[in-house]
Amino acid sequence: MTREEILAMSTGKDMNLLIAEHVLGWIAWKEQRGEYTHVIFQRPGEREPYMRSQQWKTDQKRYEPIPFTEIDRMKHIVSGLKDWSSDISAAWEVEEKIKEIGGLMIGYYMTELMLIVRSNGFNMVHATPEQRCKAALLAILPGEE
């Protein structure tokens, strides 16, 4: 995605999916439940979703990883995402992840946030969840021309 595309995004599920994939490193799994297809998420360090059952070998057939680009909210029931782009307490989790990554990523994030809020630093404490998520995506994703 280009910088302009990220900055033009509105809050909501599309931005939250990008945060889950690129910032938080979640893995999406497609789970077939009867005639419905659900998308659930595995956080880093968690076991595969089918391993949560005592009959995991049987349940394994219902699950398969799905690329985030193939998630279609018209076809799939998506559950387990937080509203990072609208909820400030959820957005702080995104900032904690940036802090956990550490190193230059913190500097990249802070620079992007300063540019988005158009501030020399003071107004960054008043940044919205949307601004914080956009700064995280811009810091993490490689820029495309």
Rank of each mutant, 00 (worst) to 15 (best):
R73W: 05
M74C: 08
K75C: 04
H76M: 03
I77G: 04
G80I: 08
L81H: 01
L81T: 00
D83W: 11
D87C: 13
D87N: 14
S89P: 02
A90C: 09
A90W: 02
A91N: 04
E93C: 04
E93W: 08
E93T: 12
V94W: 00
V94L: 01
E95V: 08
E95H: 10
K97T: 10
I98A: 01
E100W: 07
I101T: 11
G102F: 12
G103V: 04
I106T: 09
G107F: 12
G107W: 14
G107S: 10
Y108W: 13
Y109W: 03
M110R: 13
M110K: 06
L113Y: 02
L113G: 07
L113K: 05
M114L: 03
M114P: 03
L115H: 07
L115R: 15
L115D: 11
R118F: 04
R118H: 06
S119N: 00
N120T: 12
G121W: 02
N123R: 11
N123I: 02
V125G: 06
H126I: 06
A127V: 05
A127Y: 05
P129C: 03
E130H: 10
E130R: 15
E130Y: 10
E130C: 15
R132E: 04
K134H: 01
K134I: 00
K134P: 14
A135D: 05
A136P: 02
L138W: 00
L138R: 01
L138P: 12
A139S: 03
A139R: 07
I140Y: 08
I140M: 05
L141N: 09
G143E: 15
E145C: 13
E145N: 13
